[in-house]
Design a binder for these strands. Structure first.
Lengths: 220, 220, 220, 220
DNA sequence: AATGAATGAGAGTTCATTCAT
DNA sequence: AATGAATGAACTCTCATTCAT
């Protein structure tokens, strides 16, 4: 019957994304359904299809939005004039942790969704708009700078980046998903400390010419 | 359909779990359905409800089974008479990675299921049977031994264990979920190398009396 | 909630087929929907799926049922001890017309459904149960007998069978679909007469040694 | 979307039909949807409803268009100065077959749509615009000429026309709908041959004064 | 004359679950 | 102990259509 809601703004899109995120947060990935979203925003399912081509598009949009937000977090460091490359890397890690623990719902969406790159094909707005990619590039640059300053002598940049990313991702994933089985659940505080510790380890490495051999000497 | 093989013992429970696991390993998480399990074991869906309260319970059992399997993987190291504590820790990490990459579906079930502890309330058979707990205990012991040998002087055992776990978990999570955005997807080989690298870092740390201060000196 | 209707008999299958046919008859092919059938028989859509694998199966079953019925019609001639092959063929045509005009709904289903052989793959109960095939075989035999008696000298059996079938099929299709644009709609009576006329033509042909050439002589 | 090409003339009607036809010929009957047409002509679905009452009306127009096309095919024979009436009739049959097999989708629309006369009530532009009627008239005239030349002595003109139409319609219907159950699917070639054969039969008939009786003599 | 916004109705299908027997 | 029969609630998605503007 076409009862046009008094929706002066066209941002039903935003409305949908908002509610979809909320739903995900409250009831988990599996219960993001078009119908539920529709009900939540007071429209019919058909209406949603006026603004999104498919459910996948909604999910991808949400996922991308998450990476956009992460990117913003990261930019803050870029601006802050930090002295050393390693310090910058360490800060990056902390910011990542902050982002994840402050936006656990987004984080879940970003890393728990099954294969979001499937829909990306439909969306290919150019890599420029893919914030996942850009976030990774940011990390990679940080690592490269470290190498330039003498760190990570024995590993290539992607491996080192992957390792560093793994540490922070692993932490927040365990924390968010509550998989740490000991009672005093790890907090952001702990994660930050772990990064500090990790950073210290990496710093030492700079002063050893070739870790592969020198360690054998030490151990021997 | 008739009543099929008269399993004198009432361990239809085992049968269900067995087939559920098989299904799951063959076709992935998403296709575990009560009907399929029922068909596979030659009973009707209704029968399954005589042995399990809900599908969730089956999933929880499977989830626990995953941890049991992980535990088995880990036991192999325990048996192998390895000399040093750090070597043992490093091996533990590699075994963890192997387990995850060889059983990605289990790993998903173990770490991606929403809040498995929900069903645990119903089941609480005592921590003894909770293999998740036991696996963590194993890791914790490894770390403790490292401390006993002079490593990890400045961090408490849980923090260090958490950090180490984060690294490996982060790696396999990124690999399994395919979230690494650079083309040459990281492999088990890479993950192992990362562990080696990580191990080297940790080994160095032993020879510095107090990383917190000494580093400042070095950096200064 | 499993309210078991007092359905002592298991023939919900029949019920479904019956109502599906009725629906088709009343509202046309496009409105055979699972939901409508379900509503009509007082069950939920899900129930229908306990008895049929898919909508396609229902349609195929209906289609096959039609051919089964046609086959029965045809069998009557087989029993009736008719003297000549041509007479038998002519009678076959009339019976076909009778069947179609007495069961127009079935006929529509049999010849208006899009590509029923698609589902047959799933159903392959062996050609023996495919009544479409058997009906055609019946026609083919009739034609062969005609050839044995000297008719259809210049055409092979399949071509002749196809031609004869075309005549009757064309007639009933035009009649049932009401595509004949002149006012006094053709009736079964007319169709029968046409068959008679057609039969006379064919009978004549027997007495001409080679129609291909002799006609040129005549015409010339 | 803006208002696109300002077609000064209001024949958006033509535009719609044109595109509908194109769509239809390219993708088949089932994919004529108002939306697709609208998209194709650069207007919104709503606009279409300013020019057509319903989708059915569009289909009817298309259906009529089919008959117009068939009429054109037939006109070609009219122009070709063919000698005899029977030859003309035979040619008519072949042309009909050609039309149907070259435009199977049109043919479906023309003869498979449920009751196109339903919409005709709304439209009654007089028989003059009804090409179905005119096509039939054409056939009828051909048959009448045959009678004038001594054929079809024992049947009235409508019956003979109906019979002849049935043959060709039956053939193409069976071919298009793929209902011929033997493997070597009949082709246009075969259909043409069948017409030839049929024509030979009819030609013979001319030389028998009264088929009804003479045949009894022959058979006796 | 044209549209943007929206809908209601519906499609086929699948699932976990229940309950009388 | 086991099942046959059934359901309700979902699912994603598509369509023809309407109406205020």
């Amino acid at each position: 019957m076409g009862r046009p809601k008094t929706n002066e703004r066209e941002d039903i899109r935003s409305l949908v994304l908002e509610k979809a995120k909320a739903l995900f947060l409250k009831e988990g990935y599996a219960s993001i359904t078009i119908r539920k979203i529709a009900r939540a925003i007071g429209y019919t399912p058909a209406t949603i299809y006026l603004y999104f081509q498919s459910k996948a598009e909604i999910l991808y949009e949400l996922h991308n939005e998450g990476f956009r937000l992460l990117y913003e977090y990261k930019m803050k460091i870029g601006e802050a004039g930090t002295s050393g490359a390693m310090e910058r890397l360490r800060n990056g890690g902390k910011v990542y942790i902050d982002f994840a623990l402050e936006n656990p719902d987004y984080y879940e969406l970003m890393f728990n969704m099954p294969e979001p790159r499937n829909f990306m094909n439909m969306h290919r707005k150019g890599a420029a708009e893919d914030y996942a990619m850009r976030s990774y590039e940011f990390l990679r640059q940080s690592v490269q700078r470290c190498k330039d300053e003498g760190y990570f002598k024995d590993v290539d940049v992607d491996t080192a980046a992957f390792t560093f990313w793994s540490v922070v991702h692993g932490m927040v994933a365990l924390i968010i998903r509550k998989r740490v089985p000991y009672p005093q659940a790890p907090t952001r505080q702990l994660a930050h400390e772990a990064i500090e510790f990790f950073g210290r380890l990496m710093t030492m490495e700079r002063f050893v010419s070739d870790t592969r051999n020198s360690l054998k000497v030490i151990e021997g």
